[in-house]
């Protein structure tokens, strides 16, 4: 790829991820679910691993768990999500790590501020996406959110990172 193609791809990826971030902050979860490949995995690990299936994570969601999680947020029976904390997140420092056919691996930094009970908390993370280019645009094949303090003492989350 020449420089223009690379810049163009970075721009498309960035647009996609900023849109995802906006959907999550706006808690538009049905639209968020549509961004996924059915076999995609949403993972928030505690520690690094070659295969996150073999270790305990904060979340390791396949399609069913993602849908169940969203349902839990939306149905109003979960006291921690009624109302949930509100969030503002910023993604930046995008680096395209690998391009392989229709698949793009992109890493970025994320700062997320949550607000509830008049109290704000800050969460920083390195995020790595594997995106699949399809006829209807990018779809998420894998999203791994590495919170800086994932193996430390956290607080409970009523939203998605």
């Amino acid at each position: 790829m020449n420089k223009t193609d690379t810049d163009n791809q970075l721009w498309q990826v960035t647009q996609f991820l900023w849109n995802e971030a906006a959907l999550l902050d706006a808690r538009q979860y049905d639209a968020w679910l549509d961004l996924w490949q059915p076999e995609g995995l949403y993972i928030i690990p505690i520690e690094d691993a070659e295969d996150y299936a073999e270790v305990l994570n904060l979340c390791y969601d396949d399609d069913k768990m993602r849908r169940d999680r969203i349902k839990r947020f939306q149905e109003g029976f979960s006291i921690s999500s009624a109302p949930a904390a509100v969030t503002v997140r910023t993604l930046s420092r995008f680096v395209i790590d690998v391009v392989d056919g229709d698949s793009v691996v992109v890493s970025c930094g994320q700062h997320l501020v949550e607000d509830k009970f008049g109290r704000q908390r800050l969460w920083a993370a390195n995020v790595r996406y594997t995106l699949q280019s399809t006829d209807s645009g990018f779809k998420i094949q894998e999203k791994v959110v590495r919170l800086l303090n994932s193996d430390g003492v956290l607080n409970s989350f009523s939203y998605l990172h």
Partner: peptide, 9 residues
């Protein structure tokens, strides 16, 4: 845990 379907509640 922090993202379980039980503990946050």
């Amino acid at each position: 845990g922090p993202m379980g379907f039980g503990s946050p509640d």
